[in-house]
Structure formats: structure tokens, C-alpha cells
């Protein structure tokens, strides 16, 4: 697991009702795998991936996968503040998750207040067309009403997963370039990428074969 160089680290937070598939999305995004069954998230989990926001510029997306369970709400709330991007996920086969969108959105906005966060709405499980309870149009209308970007995704087919994260990464980067977002001390939403580690200690010079570390 060798760490390539990146310019910035964007901290994103995934919120939404329990069992909408947040962890599945991230798992697919980071590992390209999909598991039908997985344990509910405890507290918060972390995923990370590098993305190219423009040719030659890579950013590291550190994604906080929060527990959707109500009992973790008090904890997950404390993680909003240090996020630059918020991805709100609902399940298109579960109407209630869509109806909670507004609540999630406002909670996130309230806790992120001093900083302008970039939001993204994902209607997940788009592969389950049979059980659809929320049309794509409804989801899109909600997003447009609040000026947010919208995708319908599927961790099973991989539909729009990559695009979604690419979109939010590019938007964030653009905001950064435009000066809407700035690097700030005490705020970890955006952190400078670490340059090549200078503490390089040449402890040994081998033939440079790649060990099984990765």
C-alpha cells in the first residue's frame, strides 16, 4: 500500500439513513467489490482513494462512512464540521429514506455552517428497478431545489459510483481554485497533500523488488 503523491486531501462524509448502502458504495468505490451482506457500521469508518481532478492533479478523498443508525447520530454529528463535502444517500427502494433527505441535508448544513460544503445527492440501489419507490425525477427535483448535484447509483453494477465521486472531487477542487474554500488551520476539510516524505531514511539498498507489501 504505497502512498502516491497527491495535492490535497478532501474529507467527505457520507450520511443517510441506515441500510441505504453507504458502506457498499464506499467499498465499491475503494475496492471495486460488492458484498450483498455487511455489518452495520459502528460509529464511523474510513475509506480513502486518490482521484484525478484534472490532468496531473490528484487529490486524496478521505471518506467518512458514518453509521446511519439513530443511536450514533450524536457521534456522527461531531464529524460534520471537518468535512468539505457531504454525500447524502437514500435508497430508491425505500421511500422513507428519501423523505429523510431534507432532514439530513439540514443537519449537515447546520453543522457545517461556517464552511461552504459541497453537497451531492445519491439515489442508491438503482439496480433494483423492480422495487423502485422513488423516481429519478423526484430525486433530481429535490437536488435541483437545493442546488445540489444528483446521481442514481448502484454498488452492484457500479453505475455512477465513479462519476459521483469524480464530480464532487472536481467541484471541491474548483471551489478551492476559486477561493470559495481555503485551507485553514483547525479545519481538516481540506488539507494539503503531503509532499514526498523527506524523512526518507535509506536503511537499505536492495534490488528494489516490490515486496508483497501492497
Amino acid at each position: 500500500m504505497c502512498e502516491p503523491i497527491f495535492e490535497y486531501q478532501f474529507r467527505l462524509i457520507l450520511i443517510g439513513d441506515s441500510t441505504v448502502g453507504k458502506s457498499s458504495i464506499l467499498r465499491y468505490f475503494t475496492d471495486g467489490k460488492f458484498e450483498d451482506a455487511c455489518d452495520p457500521t459502528v460509529g464511523v469508518d474510513f475509506y480513502a482513494r486518490l482521484m484525478e481532478v484534472k490532468p496531473g492533479v490528484r487529490v486524496k478523498l478521505q471518506i467518512w462512512d458514518t453509521a446511519g443508525q439513530e443511536r450514533f447520530r450524536s457521534i456522527t454529528r461531531s464529524y460534520y464540521r471537518n468535512s468539505v463535502g457531504v454525500i447524502i444517500v437514500y435508497d430508491i427502494t425505500k421511500r422513507s429514506t428519501f423523505e429523510n433527505l431534507k432532514q439530513w441535508y439540514e443537519e449537515a448544513r447546520n453543522h457545517i455552517e461556517p464552511h461552504k460544503a459541497i453537497f451531492l445527492v445519491l439515489g442508491h440501489k438503482s439496480d433494483k428497478e423492480d422495487g423502485r419507490q422513488v423516481t429519478a425525477r423526484e430525486g433530481r427535483r429535490f437536488a435541483e431545489m437545493h442546488g445540489l448535484k444528483f446521481f442514481e447509483t448502484s454498488a452492484k453494477t457500479g453505475q455512477n459510483i465513479e462519476e459521483s465521486f469524480s464530480q464532487i472531487a472536481k467541484d471541491t477542487y474548483q471551489h478551492l481554485q476559486d477561493g470559495h474554500i481555503r485551507l485553514e488551520d483547525g479545519w481538516d476539510g481540506v488539507k494539503p497533500g503531503f509532499a514526498r516524505p523527506r524523512e526518507t531514511v535509506h536503511l537499505a539498498e536492495g534490488e528494489g523488488e516490490s515486496g508483497g507489501c501492497c
Binding site: P197, E199, T200, V201, G208, C213
Partner: peptide, 10 residues
């Protein structure tokens, strides 16, 4: 390469 290797042992 060096930094990559360094990262491996970092």
C-alpha cells in the same frame, strides 16, 4: 522510486 520505497518502510 526512492520515495515509494521509503513509503514502504515509512
Amino acid at each position: 522510486e526512492e520515495s515509494e520505497e521509503a513509503l514502504k518502510v515509512n
